[in-house]
């Protein structure tokens, strides 16, 4: 990293408003290589907006974001190139309904990375096999369950071989029976050393899987630390209050 640290990504005093409403009020965050960070906090606390700013789907109003030693908030940066290396998966899956599962996965690597169709297809099949959906390669998204769609969306992001994966409440739209199969995929990714930032309401999972928990409230990072400390001995009273309401 240019300005110290060995992180993959660093956000510095990031601000973002929608109209009169300031959603991020100066957020600073550093993510190390291979780290899994969970963003927790009430709805509207700024988790999703922060993730969308990190891969430049939203333009920040102030502050800097550094990725791989480059300031990506610089308007001269090639945003498409940055996004190739930062994958994101959304709450509502957002698969392309007119394309089959395989075409969904292959589109990015072929069109954006310029890979050959054979290479991309081979990787797609390896990944689909790993999530147990190899037989659905030719299926269309609307014919699949929510859990299956979300696993395909994860594979679509991973197929780009990103340096950093952002997950935006990817289990929130799923019924409890299907959450498990999606979380299994994330456990796998963690084992392989993928760097992940995920916004989530799954407290038990966050505690199990993350290296660090970041609690957000009102567009600020209220507290951040290792899961054991956050869940057993939160320093901020707001964190304690939030956890009291959200822990099973």
């Amino acid at each position: 990293m240019t300005e110290g640290g060995t992180g993959v990504l660093r956000a510095d005093a990031v601000r973002k408003s929608f109209g009169d409403h300031e959603v991020l009020k100066g957020v600073s965050l550093e993510i190390a290589e291979g780290e899994v960070v969970c963003l927790i906090g009430a709805s509207g606390s700024g988790k999703s907006t922060l993730l969308r700013c990190l891969n430049l789907l939203e333009q920040v109003d102030d502050g800097d974001i550094w990725f791989d030693g480059r300031e990506i908030t610089d308007p001269r940066v090639d945003v498409d190139a940055v996004r190739r290396d930062i994958g994101i998966v959304f709450q509502a899956y957002n698969l392309f309904p007119h394309l089959s599962v395989e075409q969904n996965i292959v589109l990015g690597p072929v069109r954006s990375r310029g890979e050959s169709r054979e290479t991309a297809r081979a990787r797609a099949h390896t990944l689909l096999e790993r999530i147990g959906l190899a037989d659905r390669a030719g299926a269309y998204p609307d014919a699949m369950s929510g859990g299956q769609q979300q696993r395909v969306a994860l594979v679509r992001a991973i197929a780009m071989q990103p340096r950093l994966l952002l997950l935006d409440e990817i289990t929130s739209a799923l019924d409890p029976m299907l959450v498990g199969e999606v979380l299994d995929v994330i456990r796998d990714l963690r084992t392989e050393g993928m760097t992940i930032v995920m916004a989530t309401h799954e407290m038990t999972f966050a505690r199990e899987v993350s290296d660090r928990i970041v609690f957000m409230a009102d567009g600020r990072i209220e507290e951040s630390g290792p899961p054991e400390q956050i869940f057993t001995a939160p320093r901020s009273p707001r964190t304690a209050e939030f956890l009291a309401r959200h822990l099973p």
Partner: peptide, 11 residues
């Protein structure tokens, strides 16, 4: 969201 997904893949 379809635009966002496409752009997020670096397209």
């Amino acid at each position: 969201t379809q635009w966002a997904s496409g752009r997020a893949l670096g397209l």
